[in-house]
């Protein structure tokens, strides 16, 4: 059984709906905790009593928005930018691997590798054909 008081329950409820980085969430929750503890006897209240004074976690989120939305949007754009850069690097890396692989194959087996006269067996067939031509 949890021994959480109304403040902890409130912060738990709020925390579930917060977005942003771990640090941003931590800061927002610390700020809210400070606000909750300013209410006299808040820790001894029920969650309903606390919500009637402070507002519901939804109210808090609504009020947080004008303050944090800019930061959160900023962070979202950073995340998006990072994702795009990572994707770009992955694609570039893939292209480099492909090019190096192609160069390696060409360098090792020659440009016509796989088409003709590239194995002892094929050489034997070609030699047999040549012998046949010579006989006739």
């Amino acid at each position: 059984m949890s021994t959480s008081n109304a403040v902890d329950v409130y912060l738990d409820k709020l925390g579930k709906h917060l977005t942003g980085s771990r640090q941003q969430k931590k800061n927002a929750l610390a700020e809210c905790k400070r606000m909750l503890l300013e209410v006299p006897g808040s820790e001894a209240m029920t969650i309903d009593q606390l919500e009637s004074i402070v507002g519901t976690p939804a109210d808090v989120l609504e009020n947080l928005a004008p303050n944090l939305s800019v930061e959160l949007a900023h962070e979202a754009s950073h995340k998006e930018r990072f994702r795009r850069i990572l994707l770009g690097v992955c694609i570039l890396f893939g292209i480099v691997i492909l090019v190096l692989g192609t160069i390696f194959v060409i360098d090792t087996y020659g440009a016509n590798h796989g088409y003709y006269n590239d194995s002892p067996a094929m050489e034997g067939i070609f030699q047999s054909s040549q012998d046949a031509v010579d006989i006739y």
Binding site: M35, V39, I53, V54, G55, D59, N63, N67
Partner: peptide, 10 residues
Amino acid sequence: SLATIYFTLK
């Protein structure tokens, strides 16, 4: 609500 006042003050 206190939250509204708090963030206004902020």
